[in-house]
Amino acid sequence: MIPVEHVLGLSAILFLIGTVGALTRRNIIVLLMCIELMLNAASLAFVGFNRLWPVKEAGATVSALNGQVFVLMVIVVATAEVAVGLGIVISLFRNRDSMNVEDVSLLKW
C-alpha cells in the first residue's frame, strides 16, 4: 500500500515546481507547460485522496470515484486551455514575432 502522505508530498513538490516555473520563466510556451504541470499535480492529489477514501461513508458498499471524476474534469479543462492557449501563442507570434511574455504589454498600465 502506497502511503497517501507521500503521494500528496509528490503532488506538492510538482505543484511548487510548476508555480515557480510559471512565475519566473518568460517564454509563453514554457509558461503554458508549467501550468499543465500544476494541473497534473492537483490531479495526482485527487487520485491520492480517492485511494485514501475508497467509500463515501462507513459501511458503504458502492465505491466512490469522486476524485477520479474530478481528474477527468481537470483533464478536459487542461485540454481546452491548451487548445485556446496555443491558438493565442500562434497568433501572437505572427503579430509580435516573439515568445517573450514581457513583449506583450499593450494592456498593461
Partner: peptide, 20 residues
C-alpha cells in the same frame, strides 16, 4: 458537470480555430 465539460470542449474548439 459532464455535459458542461462537453460544452467547454466545443467552445475551445471553436475558439482555437478562430484564434489560429
Amino acid at each position: 458537470p459532464f455535459e458542461i465539460a462537453s460544452l467547454l470542449l466545443l467552445a475551445a474548439i471553436v475558439g482555437s480555430v478562430v484564434l489560429a
